[in-house]
């Protein structure tokens, strides 16, 4: 009886794993087959208004890129503060817990917040509003990974630096951060991958535009919001374009994730 139960349990677990993987495989299969169908050079050459995706892809990457660009120094500095200066005081622990929770906060709520502080006062959607929403989403991620990565730096390195008379600033920037560089890079890549695929906080902050634009003060083209709009259109050609966009988006996110893994693996094997 025990052995039968055991066998049943193993079979059940394996089956569950297979079922789960089947669903996920089904999604990927659909994505690839539908996405590749519509893939052509025109997708990258033309803007949405002419049936391509050029402007929305560039728009999405620009918004996420600028958000990352602003988020990196602030996130890393905050992480440094928590690990190097904050010690284990209650306020440090509090900030740490807070960014931990913020990491998983619903992104749509961040969108409503930005809508209230940017879109309502200015009266229209804008690229900067989208950037701000993505920035708010990514800072806690960078803070936590930096904090975690710095924690792994051996205390002896810091002591050695201080012993030869280096200031705390020098020790932090030239020894500790340098040691943890690969891990921090991974955190940044993962944070970028996470925000580049966000839709909910962009719907009414950046909106989306069918035209080429690099002007962040106006409504800004967004790939994810466009996918959302295209997929619900009655025209099959539009839906097809949506699938192509979804395919490109997923490919981009997966590649960045793999890069992030590669960066941290290289570190570990060293």
């Amino acid at each position: 009886m025990r052995l039968i139960m055991n066998r049943a349990f193993i079979i059940f677990s394996t089956l569950a794993a297979i079922v789960g993987l089947l669903f996920l495989g089904w999604i990927l299969f659909t994505l690839f087959s539908k996405g590749l169908q519509g893939l052509s050079f025109d997708v990258f050459r033309k803007d949405l208004i002419e049936g391509g995706l050029r402007n929305v892809i560039v728009g999405q990457i620009m918004m996420s890129g600028i958000a990352t660009f602003i988020g990196i120094p602030i996130g890393i500095l905050a992480g440094i503060y928590l690990q190097e200066y904050g010690g284990n005081s209650r306020s440090t622990e509090f900030l740490r817990d807070l960014s931990d929770v913020m990491m998983s906060a619903p992104s749509i709520v961040v969108g409503t917040f930005v809508y209230a502080i940017v879109v309502v006062p200015t009266g229209h959607t804008s690229g900067w509003a989208g950037v701000l929403a993505l920035f708010i989403l990514m800072v806690p991620i960078i803070v936590r990974t930096t904090d975690d990565m710095l924690k792994l730096v051996p205390i002896e390195l810091r002591e050695a630096g201080i012993a030869i008379g280096a200031s705390k600033y020098h020790v932090t920037m030239n020894i500790v951060v340098r040691y943890a560089k690969a891990g921090i890079l991974t955190g940044i890549l993962l944070a970028f991958a996470r925000v580049v695929g966000e839709t909910a906080p962009l719907i009414y902050t950046s909106g989306s535009s069918e035209f080429w634009s690099t002007d962040l003060t106006g409504t800004f083209p967004s790939l994810t919001v466009s996918i959302y709009n295209l997929a619900t259109m009655p025209d099959d050609k539009m839906v097809q374009l949506g699938w192509t966009g979804a395919f490109l988006l997923t490919t981009m996110v997966l590649i960045i994730n793999l890069l992030g893994r590669y960066a941290s693996n290289k570190k570990r094997s060293k």
């Binding site: 993987l21 996920l24 999604i27 994505l31 695929g197 994810t224 996918i227 988006l249 997966l254």
Partner: peptide, 19 residues
């Protein structure tokens, strides 16, 4: 693979669900 799948944007799941 499972970890990578966890990183797929949620809009993809929604779209697949719809169609």
């Amino acid at each position: 693979a499972i970890e990578l799948l966890a990183s797929i944007p949620s809009i993809i799941y929604g779209m697949w669900g719809l169609f």
